[in-house]
Design a protein around this nucleic acid. Structure first.
Length: 210
DNA sequence: AGGTAGATGTTCT
DNA sequence: GAACATCTACCTG
């Protein structure tokens, strides 16, 4: 892997073009404890206000603000009360589209990743969007970081792009709308690809009686 | 192998 | 108040 991040214009094109082109690339996160890196094997595209499954579908809010900014920045959000997920914003500026980084293979700092996820097998360290964030210690404070800046602690490197012939597509995982849009991209046969899960509405907790 | 339940809190209606 | 781009643990076969 080289030390130079992908150029910003890599992200300045339609999100469904950027997403498959990200497969095989390497996301590095430097922390005081050291560096850890993941080679991306699974991603999903979310196409801004036109996409009912996108966080920006209902317009700009404090949470999704970063999505409306320039491409090449990280959009980190908190979900299910305990997990973080990371996206990379795509262009053009103001389009509010982004690619969710769903899974990958740890290629550097495996000791760190394992310390952060002590109950996990090596294969599962970054197998899933919240696991990926945990392995790389990506949390809310990293929201908005510029991953194309060589000086940034969170960077996306070119790595070795996946052979397009090995890229598969299918419906996105765990989304309740736009189920038919095949905007999940993964490297066929890679063991770190996360299992597909259909969206299931959460069962309501029995409302506390009074 | 596969299903389900429970955890936790932020965001938006 | 409900939904939520999830994960783990704990069942059952």
């Amino acid at each position: 892997m080289t030390a130079t991040p992908l150029p910003r214009d890599f992200f300045d094109r339609p999100v469904d073009e950027v997403a498959p082109a990200l497969l095989g690339r390497v996301l590095v996160h430097a922390t005081p404890e050291g560096e850890a890196a993941v080679r991306l094997t699974e991603v999903e595209a979310y196409a801004g206000p036109l996409d009912p499954a996108s966080h920006s579908y209902r317009g700009r809010t404090p949470r999704n603000d970063v999505m409306w900014g320039p491409p090449g920045h990280a959009y980190v959000y908190f979900t299910y009360g305990m997990h973080f997920c990371v996206n990379l914003v795509c262009g053009p500026d103001g389009m509010s589209s982004a690619v969710l980084l769903r899974a990958g293979e740890i290629v550097a700092g495996q000791d760190l990743a394992q310390a952060r996820r002590p109950r996990s097998s090596v294969r599962d360290l970054a197998r899933g969007p919240a696991r990926l964030c945990q392995a790389l210690a990506i949390v809310r404070e990293h929201n908005g970081l510029d991953v194309c800046d060589p000086a940034s602690t969170l960077r996306i490197l070119d790595g070795v792009p996946a052979d397009p012939a090995t890229v598969r597509t299918g419906p996105r995982t765990g989304v309740s709308s736009a189920k038919d849009t095949p905007w999940r991209f993964w490297i066929d046969g890679d063991p770190s690809v996360s299992p597909y899960r259909e969206h299931v509405p959460r069962k309501r907790r029995p409302a506390g009686r009074a």
